[in-house]
Structures are given as C-alpha cells and as structure tokens.
C-alpha cells in the first residue's frame, strides 16, 4: 500500500452550548496526530486550530461537526455548523472582535482571538458563511518536507 496516499478521516459531532464537552473532539484529534507521529509543532498547530474551531461551534452555533482529514502531506481541519452564521467575516477575523456572551468570557474565551488564532496556526484558512444558516471553516496545515 502506498503510504503517501493514505488518508485518515476523523469526524465528531459538536453540540452548541455544551461547554462541558467542549474540547473533547480537538483533544481526540490531537491524540491521533501525536500517535501517528507528526512533529510536535504540527500537532500543536493543528490542536489549537481544532480547539478554537470547536469552541466557536459550542459558543455560537446550534450544532455542528468537527473533522480532520489527515494525510502525509497535510492536515485539514473542517468545522461545519448550523447556526446564526457570520455577517462580516473580515470583522470577525480582527483580533479582539467578539460577539460571545459574558458567561463565555468568564470561562476564559470569547476574547476575539479564536479566528485570528486559527489563522496564525494554519497555512490556509477559508471561511464560508450564510447568515441564518451556518458557517463552514477549513484550516489547512501543510506538512513540510513531504
């Protein structure tokens, strides 16, 4: 079997407002990446991107899925949700801009760093959103030296 073409896909359901379970999916993705033997920096970047994307679903959406598509060349984190959507993506990308409610801030989130954090960790970030329907986020991390 050609290892270079192997693909591993992980899918997780994420429930909106489930703050207790928030982060479980990202934690699992991170564990698999570690087990597969990716460089710690790659694991770290993918883990942060997945965690922030998962928190975004929990904080803002009704429900969604978090998935990771893993190959030897790249890791793609996809967060797809049913929710209110993002009216102004450019604004949402600004550090410090947040629409999170106060109780989320008390938990240490909602500081307007989520999307900028994902962007910082990823080699490519695409966000498609429809107000009243939901948001799909794709963050790509390219594995160097492959």
């Amino acid at each position: 079997m050609d290892r270079a073409k192997e693909e591993l896909v992980l899918n997780f359901q994420v429930q909106g407002r489930d703050f207790q379970g928030a982060g479980v999916a990202a934690s699992q993705i991170r564990r698999v990446l570690k087990q597969v033997g990716f460089d710690p920096q790659v694991v770290r970047r993918a883990g942060i991107a997945a965690y922030e994307a998962e928190m975004n679903i929990v904080i803002h959406a009704y429900r969604g899925t978090l998935s990771a598509r893993i190959t030897a060349q790249e890791i793609e984190i996809v967060a797809e949700d049913e929710g209110p959507g993002i009216a102004d993506i450019e604004l949402a990308m600004q550090e410090g801009y947040s629409t999170a409610p106060p109780e989320v801030r008390e938990m240490g989130f909602g500081a307007g760093m989520g999307l900028p954090n994902i962007k910082r960790c990823a080699d490519g970030l695409e966000i498609a959103s429809e107000v009243g329907r939901g948001t799909t986020l794709r963050a790509r991390i390219v594995i160097k030296g492959t």
Binding site: Q20, E52, M107, G108, M113, P116, N117
Partner: peptide
Amino acid sequence: DLMSDVLAFAAGKVLLLTGLTNSH
C-alpha cells in the same frame, strides 16, 4: 486568565499560571 491568549502566545514547555479553575 484568557485561555484564547494562552493558545495564541504560550510556546514551549510552559508553566501556566492562572486564576481560572474550570475544566477549560
């Protein structure tokens, strides 16, 4: 105390000091 800032800025094997005590 801001977990998003921890994710953004902490690097290496860090000691995290915080006043937050939740599971996050």
